[in-house]
């Protein structure tokens, strides 16, 4: 079966009323970079597709009342070139840079990457590190939930694209003591799934050296993006140094449980995630960007 209609609503209301009208038989589509590939092998079971890429309100990236908002239909390229995010969402910018190739980044969206729920989707890892809140509308109902809660399994999201529309992601604007960063290692420098990827949000104490709190999200270490909570706890109140980062690297390598694949052995990925943690934090503290994509 293939769809009969393809809609391009121009407002959130219009998109919601189209969803409502089709009673679960329409499906939202954003960039389609995953969906169209999937459609080839497994046709999309929907009578209509509703393309949210033309809704200006869903493409906005802005700051409001101490929170940063990223519209659901913002493309990866938009994120990469956003001055606001460069300053206040580095982890998301660097993750978006890593997605696919330029052509894919130009159409693929942040929400799409969350709904397709791949355990190592780069921007999903970044959003988990930011502990972003997902803003969802379904009919007249508005709800919010932590992004991590939307991942149910590989390719499985709690968000139903036939009923629910993600409008935005948001997170508290980082203070001057907060740092975020992202790193990934892959078999080649673009168009490759990561061997490992890691995003973090670090809150420093006043001395600018000691960890007050850190959130670390990694992939592909589980069926969903993984929060390395043990490692996070082990780093609390630690003054960052080469030695401490080495230690944290060992902790995270123990904490994660990746699988063997032809891309790399589980042991290799465990080891690499330790290097990733060390490097990601080091480059950000040094005030440099990550250089895997320049």
């Amino acid at each position: 079966m293939t769809w009969e209609n393809y809609y391009m609503p121009s407002s959130i209301e219009e998109a919601l009323s189209l969803l409502d009208k089709h009673q679960g038989e329409a499906r939202l589509i954003a960039g389609g970079t995953d969906l169209m590939v999937q459609h080839k092998s497994e046709p999309i079971e929907a009578k209509a597709l509703i393309d949210i890429g033309g809704i200006p309100d869903l493409k906005k990236i802005h700051e409001e009342n101490g929170r940063v908002y990223v519209g659901a239909a913002a493309t990866h390229s938009q994120v990469v070139s956003s001055p606001l995010l460069k300053e206040k969402g580095r982890v998301l910018v660097d993750a978006a840079k890593a997605v696919g190739a330029l052509q894919i980044r130009n159409v693929g969206t942040i929400a799409g990457n969350v709904v397709t729920a791949q355990p190592a989707a780069d921007t999903a890892i970044a959003l988990v590190a930011l502990d972003a809140c997902v803003h969802i509308q379904s009919g007249s109902e508005k709800l919010e939930k932590p992004v991590l809660d939307t991942f149910l399994g590989p390719g499985k999201s709690s968000i139903n694209p036939s009923k629910e529309l993600i409008t935005a992601f948001s997170y508290p604007t980082p203070t001057s003591l907060e740092r975020t960063g992202f790193i990934r290692f892959a078999r080649r420098d673009s168009l490759a799934l990561p061997l490992v990827n890691l995003g973090f949000w670090l809150i420093l104490k006043e001395d600018q050296k000691t960890v007050k709190e850190i959130r670390i999200a990694v992939g592909p270490m589980s069926t969903v993006p993984f929060r390395a909570r043990e490692t996070e706890a082990s780093m609390k109140d630690v003054q960052i140094s080469e030695e401490e980062l080495e230690k944290a690297g060992l902790v995270i390598a123990e904490e994660v449980t990746p699988r063997d694949s032809f891309r790399g052995s589980a042991d290799f990925k465990k080891y690499l995630i330790g290097v990733a943690l060390k490097r990601a934090i080091k480059v950000v503290l040094d005030g440099k960007g990550v250089d895997w994509d320049d």
């Binding site: 190739a101 080649r188 420098d189 032809f262």
Partner: peptide, 21 residues
């Protein structure tokens, strides 16, 4: 190959260098 079947018969899994490499 795994049991004689090619595991990576596509350009996603068979990693040719790209312009970035």
């Amino acid at each position: 190959l795994k049991d004689g079947a090619l595991v990576n018969p596509n350009f996603h899994d068979y990693c040719l260098p790209t312009a970035m490499d």
